[in-house]
Simulated assay, not measured.
Amino acid sequence: MRPAALVAVLALVLPLAACGGDDEGGSDTITVLAAASLTESFTELADRFEADHPGVDVKLAFDSSATLAQQAVDGAPADVLATADTATMDSARDALAEDPRTFATNTMVLVTPRDNPAGLTGFEGLEDPGVTYVACVDTAPCGKVAAALSADNGLTAKPASLEVDVKSVLAKVTSDEADAGFVYATDAVAAGDRVETFEIPHAADEVTSYPIAPLTQSRDSALAGQFVDLVLSEEGRQVLSAAGFGKP
């Protein structure tokens, strides 16, 4: 789907930040665009934000960082953007109301279905004949990291498919549609006993940083800023740490 079409769809399914505003023109709804790998942690943070701000509704839109950054630049009705790498956030700079701030880091691991049908014992098993693995498209941060790690480790086997985001990769693995997949450590934590996890050599050399910033099109900059502050706070750090994210 082209970016313009994505914005049109987003405009239909996500309420404008102005909806439900008070008599002074404020808003009781904010929309947060967040990388797919933030699904579990940002859902919890949104719940906490709503509990601390009675009457406020946080709408969450999760997708590939590249897709969300383009939506932000195209003026999608949203208040906050959080991406899975700094390069993607930089591509949305024209839509940022403030300089982005890094709130977490992540590394990549290899996961297999719980029963590990291919009998993998480590990353090197991806070269075995008949083994299928999946990764993200190279326009997504998770795809860039997977490609870098494949090069770092001299992997010659090609992925069976390239998925739009890391949650799609995880879904392929947990549904037994692939023998293995490149996902973030946080996704492996979220999957729990549905997957078996293996370290990837040199993963520590390919750490990805997560920045966040309010957007210029926000109709309630105060609420947007408060959500950003929550993510950056000690409370936010605890939620992110429990999900497997590293410190900025």
Rank of each mutant, 00 (worst) to 15 (best):
A5P: 15
A11C: 04
P15K: 07
P15Q: 03
G21M: 04
D23W: 10
G26D: 03
T29K: 07
T29G: 06
I30D: 00
T31F: 13
E40H: 15
S41Q: 03
E44N: 09
E44W: 07
E44A: 11
F49Y: 00
E50C: 00
A51I: 01
H53M: 01
D57L: 11
V58C: 12
V58R: 06
K59V: 13
L60F: 03
L60C: 05
A66H: 13
A69S: 08
A72N: 02
D74H: 12
G75M: 02
A76I: 06
A76C: 08
A78M: 04
A78Q: 05
T83E: 00
D85P: 14
S91Y: 05
L96P: 04
L96T: 01
L96R: 02
E98P: 12
F103A: 06
N106E: 11
R114W: 14
N116R: 09
T121M: 10
F123S: 05
E124P: 15
L126D: 01
E127L: 10
E127Q: 13
V131F: 03
V131S: 06
V131P: 06
V131G: 08
T132R: 05
A135E: 08
C136H: 12
T139H: 11
T139F: 08
A147T: 09
A148N: 10
D152L: 09
N153E: 09
P159K: 08
A160H: 08
L162T: 12
V166Y: 04
V166P: 08
K167Y: 15
L170S: 08
V173Y: 02
D179L: 00
D187G: 14
A190F: 03
G192P: 05
D193H: 07
E196H: 10
T197K: 11
T197V: 12
T197H: 04
I200F: 00
H202V: 09
A204W: 01
T208E: 14
S209W: 01
I212D: 04
A213P: 06
L215K: 00
L215G: 11
D220I: 06
A222K: 13
A224L: 06
G225C: 05
D229A: 13
E235K: 09
R237P: 02
V239N: 00
S241L: 09
G246V: 08
K247S: 14
P248K: 04
